[in-house]
């Protein structure tokens, strides 16, 4: 029983980790409607920035988020403005996907070029210490990630519901043409959203960096998992992405224990496929939100 509780706790914590990556992706995938294959590389860039800043200036890695998140915002906004926006009019959405594949390849290899294939270790500054909840052990850093994910979801939700800009973003997501008619600058909204999505993962990277070794290829694992979480949660739904991530975290941890660690990926992707096929609006989506499904 203790083991089971510990696995559940591990799964939830892992879910929190996935969530903080997936929330940014759901903004980009759900609103700008671009499959951003470079999202994992955004995380990687953020983790390296955190590593450089926290070791270079000897500050707590969490503090670097103040610089990393804005930096990632700029990276995201530039990606949208310079790479995706010129392709928005392309009749073929394949093209955008390949653009982000190109970006992903370029960023990953740039990291390899600059940092080499060795791992980089961000100092933990105490976030690797443990707290005991009954018999269950959890790292403080994992709790921070989990808490930050919740705050991020609530904050984004409030932003989307209460602010003018947030409402404009939602309007654009639902119907771009109509939003434009209403005087919303859709191009700006997309740049902003892409930037925000990247900034979210930037925030996440500062929290994740002290927990995991950073390497140029760390993003590749996260990006596919994050897509799974986003689709599971319902496209464009921020709380959905969060809960989707928790589900995937739990599935991952439980299948790793009960089915076998070599098959856990297969389990996760099979669940993903079942959701895609049987309930494409996602586990938590209330309405069909697949703009790409034709009547």
């Amino acid at each position: 029983m203790d083991t089971f509780l510990q696995i559940v706790a591990n799964g939830l914590m892992l879910g929190g980790l996935f969530a903080i990556v997936a929330v940014g992706l759901t903004l980009i995938f759900g609103i700008v409607k671009v499959i951003n294959f470079a999202h994992g590389e955004f995380l990687m860039v953020g983790m390296y920035l955190t590593f450089l800043l926290s070791t270079g200036m000897d500050v707590h890695p969490y503090l670097t988020a103040a610089a990393v998140a804005p930096a990632l915002f700029v990276l995201g906004a530039l990606t949208q403005r310079l790479l995706i926006q010129p392709l928005m009019s392309a009749r073929d959405e394949h093209v955008q996907i390949f653009a982000t594949v190109g970006l992903s390849t370029a960023l990953m290899n740039l990291a390899l070029l600059v940092f080499g294939a060795d791992i980089a270790n961000t100092p933990a500054h105490g976030v690797r210490s443990q707290v005991m909840l009954g018999e269950v052990r959890i790292l403080t850093g994992q709790l921070w990630v989990f808490g930050a994910a919740i705050l991020l979801v609530i904050g984004l939700q409030l932003f989307m519901k209460k602010t003018r800009t947030g409402r404009a973003i939602r309007a654009t997501a639902q119907n771009r043409a109509a939003a434009r008619l209403m005087g919303i600058n859709d191009k700006f909204i997309y740049v902003l959203t892409f930037g925000m999505g990247a900034a979210c993962v930037g925030l996440g990277s500062s929290l994740i960096a002290p927990l995991y070794p950073t390497s140029p290829t760390i993003g590749t694992y996260f990006v596919l998992i994050a897509f799974v979480c986003v689709v599971l949660g319902g496209l464009g739904s921020i709380p959905g992405a969060f809960f989707g991530a928790l589900v995937i975290g739990l599935v991952d941890a439980l299948s790793g224990f009960y089915i076998g660690s070599d098959l856990r990926e297969a389990v996760v992707f099979t669940i993903f496929l079942l959701i895609l096929i049987l309930k494409p609006s996602g586990l938590f989506g209330t309405r069909m939100n697949l703009s790409h499904v034709s009547p």
């Binding site: 510990q6 892992l14 995991y212 290829t217 694992y221 660690s261 990926e265």
Partner: peptide, 16 residues
């Protein structure tokens, strides 16, 4: 037990 080297979580394996 095998696992992919790119994994980000081995806690289940450790518990096992």
């Amino acid at each position: 037990q095998g696992y992919p080297s790119s994994t980000v979580d081995m806690s289940s394996l450790v518990l096992d």
